[in-house]
Structures are given as C-alpha cells and as structure tokens.
Design a protein around this nucleic acid. Structure first.
Lengths: 209, 209
DNA sequence: GCAAATTTTGACCGATTGGACAAACGTTAG
DNA sequence: CTAACGTTTGTCCAATCGGTCAAAATTTGC
C-alpha cells in the first residue's frame, strides 16, 4: 500500500508538469539511459539542482511518466465494446489507435523504447493488467466470430496487428516521411493511412471481381 | 571516394566479427547512447583498449553494423518480383519478412532503435536508397492493381503495413510473449502469426457467408 | 631461432554523468 | 516587519564515460 499522496503547493504542481512535459520529449527520443538530467532540465527551463528538488531521482521522472502513459495508452482498447456492430467496433478501434499515433507520437515512442529494451520497468504490468485486458477483449472478439459477424481468426494476433500498423506511424514516423517524400509525407499521410487500413482490415487484398 | 579496404590479418578478421556480434547484442537492447564500450568489450570477452585497437571509435562499430544490416534488411523487398503471380509474390514477401523477424530479432531492434531516435545516422539512406527501392516496388504493385490481380489501394501504405506487422514480432517480442502467456507464447507463435497475417492480407476480416 | 610486426594490457586522462548540500533567495502568514 | 517556509542556485563529489599511450606479450615471416 502506498502512503497518501504528498501535499503539493501550486508551484510544485506546475513545475512538476513542466518537468514531465520536458522529460517526455527527451526520453522519447533518446531512451532512458540515453537521456541526461541536464537535457531534461534545460528543456524545462531550469537548473539541474532545481529539477532534482521536484524529482529526487531520474528514475522517478520516468516512472511517473510511465504510470500516466499506460492509462491513456490502453484506453482505446478498453472502449472496444460488445454492444455495437462488431465490424464497426473494430473499425473505430483502429481509427482511435491511429489518432493516438497522430496526436501522441512521443508517448508512443516512449512506450516503444521501453518495450524494445526488454520492458525492464513495466514487465509486471504487461503480464498482469495488459494481458488480462487483452484476454478479455479476445473473448469478446471470439464471440463475434462464433456469431459469424467477422471472419474466424486469431484474436490475439488480430490485436497485435492493429497495434503494429497504427503505432508504426508514430514510432517509425521519420522513415514513413522519408519514403513518402515531400509531396505525400505531409499532414495527409494519416488520412491515407486510415483509408488503407480500413480497406486492409475489412477486405484484405483479394481483388473484387 | 573511399580508399581501398585495409588489409586484415586472420586475427583481425576474427576479432572484428567477435566485436560486431557482441555490439549487435548490446546496441540492440540499449541503443547507441545507452551502450558503453565496456559493455561491448565484456560481451566480446576482451579489454576495452583491446577493442579500441580494432575499432578506434564507438561510432565506427555502430556504423559498420548499420551498413551490413541495411543490405540484408532490404533483401526481402528486393526479391519482390514482377514475374510470378502477384498474390503469391506478396504472400511470400510477408513470409520472408516474418522469418527475418524470427531469425534476426536483434537486427530488427537495432534498426528500430535507430529510427525511433530520428535516424540521425542513416537519414540519407532512408531518403535515398530506401525511398528509391520502395517507389520502384510501388510501381510494380500498381501494375498488379491495374491488371486486376489485387485490390486497388495505396502501395506505399501496403508496404508499411507489412513492415509493421512482421517487425512487430521482433521489436515488441517481450510484449507479445507477455500477452500470449506461457502456453501460447512459445516457438509456435510465429506460425500462428504467419497464418493470421496470410488471412488478414488476403481476405481481411469480413465474414465469408 | 630471431627480428619485426602485431596484439594485448594497465595505467591514465579530460569530460560527462547522477546526485548531494548548504547558502541564498523569494513568498507568505501573522 | 519578520519569522517560517518554500524555492533556486553555485559548488562540489564520486562514478562512469570515450578514448590515449607506452610498455609488455604474442604471433608471424624468414
């Protein structure tokens, strides 16, 4: 059990937010070990000792960031419900995940960095909370398959493929833009991606004759 | 213009390979900045000054690794040919990429690390060689669409989705295994993934009635 | 077998790292 | 005004970083 949350002054709340915002920027592009407290302090517009007054260790910043991240990160999957039309539910899940890749690319990269490095700090969460949630949604999806609403396939790998294809546009953004070039790599790329993914997940590539 | 490759003794060849193998392990899990020469030296079973006798700078190791990586990494796409049946060609491209994720996960993670951090060292390659290759293959795919062999869609995003779904099993391996659990996360996961991806890319999720 | 060339090592260097600390500064309640 | 409290800063520290260097150990060519 955690002790009660420490009381914080107005300045502490504001400065802590400032630091977390700066740390998100730095951690997401350099990884944990590749980032320095000085970098974060400079990005937050304060001195290193001043930053350490609000977060006593570098790890504390990263930990706070990860805790917040996971909640918002899993929200789209939580919304996947059994109530609506299955195909529509899946389509809007894909859309929501793609919007998150567009609007919160740094969060996506922070998460990717952590997983890439073997998830040393969030392994229990993956095996616990995340696995439970995915298993639960896999059951929902299996129900849809039994009811003949969507094609029979592996629900877990289906979820993986949605994660992979949507997060790709955040995590590999520089590659996507480099390949698309100046003309097609602009803001329109997310709409193009949305159109493509919708078609892929619904009809696949087989030609309609 | 580069000078001719320096002559190397037998020991130099062997030790350089040993170092590159160790560096692949270390860089792929810690990123460039997060890895130290000492770590690599220890993994290669030699002292730091000895390692620096073979590679004068940390960057030289990473650079050599990246050069080798890119050639093998793009090989599957290069093989995508206009000669066979389009659907079969795409299917075997997906299979080849998934096999690479299974057999060379460290290479995949090394690449992912570099892209995540903004591709500071390989940006010219992405905009040059990679873009050219992808554009070329996109033209081939467009031809297949015009011929009615596969459904009309965006060839670039199609290639992205193949990259994303296959590399996911290397880059996010710990997450995949955590979610699948002990029973389904074993060696069979790549065969399950292969089956799922084949179905997804060919038929999508729409139920066959 | 021996001299020349190559390989390995230990000791060392300046720069950077995460973090500690006391002093100075600012704010606020009475 | 002032005492108490919260905030900021400069200075400092030990550990680690990438990298150098000369000397020792080993391998190689003859």
């Amino acid at each position: 059990m955690e002790g009660s949350a420490p009381r914080r002054t107005r300045i502490q709340q504001e400065k802590r937010e400032l630091i977390l915002e700066a740390a998100l920027e730095v951690f997401s592009t350099n990884g944990f070990r590749g980032s320095t407290i000085d970098q974060i302090a400079e990005a937050a517009g304060m001195s290193k000792p001043n930053l350490l007054y609000y977060f006593r260790r570098k790890e504390d910043i990263h930990e706070t960031l990860m805790e917040r991240l996971l909640a918002t990160w899993l929200a789209p999957l939580r919304e996947l419900d059994d109530i609506g039309d299955p195909m529509t539910e899946l389509r809007s899940y894909i859309r929501r995940k793609l919007e998150m890749a567009r609007d919160f690319p740094r969060e996506s990269r922070l998460f990717a960095n952590e997983i890439l490095q073997g998830a040393p700090r969030i392994m229990p969460l993956l095996e616990g909370e995340l696995k439970t949630l995915v298993d639960e949604k896999a059951t929902v999806i299996k129900g849809w398959m039994r009811a003949g609403k969507i094609a029979r396939t592996d629900p877990w790998h289906l979820i993986f493929s949605i994660w992979a294809t949507t997060q790709h546009y955040a995590d590999f953004d520089v590659q996507v833009r480099a390949v698309l070039g100046a003309d097609r790599g602009g803001d329109g790329r997310f709409e193009d991606a949305a159109r493509f993914l919708e078609q892929l997940f619904i009809d696949g590539l087989k030609p309609k004759n």
